[in-house]
């Protein structure tokens, strides 16, 4: 057999073999890998490259070496899942770099990180001033994660004591002018529902680039033709405003009527409606 056919055949078969093997080795992101894992990937890749170029006389030797470098990391992964001890030895432990706002110099030395590098990492986490950092840790992957002092952390709705309506992820129902049946059905809607929605807005589906349905069932559209202004869903705000109006009406009725029983009925309902609106506010307005 000619050499080039040999190389072609072995390269193609190794291409698919490596595809499967690398998939077997896991899904982890290449930048978030421990250094040793990175090495095992590279060794497996180099062995495959040598084999595909027919640089070793006996292919069996190549397969033996390849299987060791592929199977051992997988085996170590399973062992680390089972035992914390193995995990600590294989991936190492995280190192605390800053504790209570003070840099731990010995740990810095142990990770062989210079002060400049530490500061650069902190800056990349948006902590420009060392005074803002309460705690920083170097993960086993070499990433540095920062916990800011409580008064420097971004404000959440919890800090403000504000209740927010829970939101689930929006579902994309139209993509490039095509209806996506699967996501539409998972929402419990059908094609007719979407057609009616599009008709009320007044656009044809061919003109829609992306259409998403949010957790409350409102449809948001982005059109190909950006000159067309479409009304964005404001139904919930309108609903809240209408409730506000009704509540004010009930209040004025209760003030106007001379019938004692009716006055009581009106004011009771006005009060009840006010309470409900307070409850509805996070769902309708935010």
């Amino acid at each position: 057999m000619q050499t080039w056919i040999q190389i072609l055949l072995s390269s193609v078969s190794l291409f698919f073999l490596m595809l499967i093997l690398i998939r077997l080795m896991g899904k982890r992101n290449i930048v978030r890998m421990t250094p040793f894992r990175f090495v095992s990937y590279i060794v497996a890749a180099v062995i495959a490259a040598i084999m595909s170029l027919n640089l070793i006389a006996n292919l069996t030797f190549g397969f033996i070496a390849l299987s060791v470098w592929v199977l051992f990391p997988i085996a170590l992964d399973y062992l680390s899942l089972k035992s914390k001890w193995v995990h600590d030895i294989v991936s190492g432990k995280e190192t605390v770099l800053i504790k209570h706002g003070k840099i731990m110099e010995e740990n810095l030395l142990q990770t062989r990180l210079t002060a400049e590098e530490l500061l650069r990492e902190l800056r990349s986490k948006n902590a420009f001033s060392l005074a803002d950092v309460e705690f920083a840790v170097m993960e086993d992957t070499g990433d540095i994660n920062v916990f800011l002092k409580s008064h420097k952390k971004p404000v959440s709705s919890y800090d403000l004591g504000m209740k927010l309506a829970p939101l689930t992820e929006p579902q994309t129902v139209i993509l490039d002018g095509n209806m996506l049946n699967e996501s539409l059905f998972s929402l419990g809607f059908n094609r007719e529902w979407l057609e009616i929605q599009l008709e009320t807005i007044g656009v044809s589906i061919d003109n829609v680039f992306i259409g998403q349905v949010d957790s409350s069932g409102d449809l948001y559209l982005d059109l190909f033709d950006d000159s067309i202004q479409i009304p964005q869903p404001k139904v919930k705000e309108m609903l809240y405003a209408n409730f506000e109006k009704s509540q004010a009406d009930l209040m004025s009725f209760s003030l106007e009527t001379k019938n004692e029983a009716a006055r009581k009925m009106y004011s009771e309902h006005a009060e009840k409606l006010e309470q409900l609106m307070e409850k509805l506010k996070p769902y309708l307005l935010r």
Binding site: A165, P166, T168, S215, S216, G217, K236
Partner: peptide
């Protein structure tokens, strides 16, 4: 009623 039917969130 429409919103009560089409929302996916139990709490809402």
């Amino acid at each position: 009623r429409l919103y009560a039917l089409q929302t996916r969130d139990k709490e809402s």
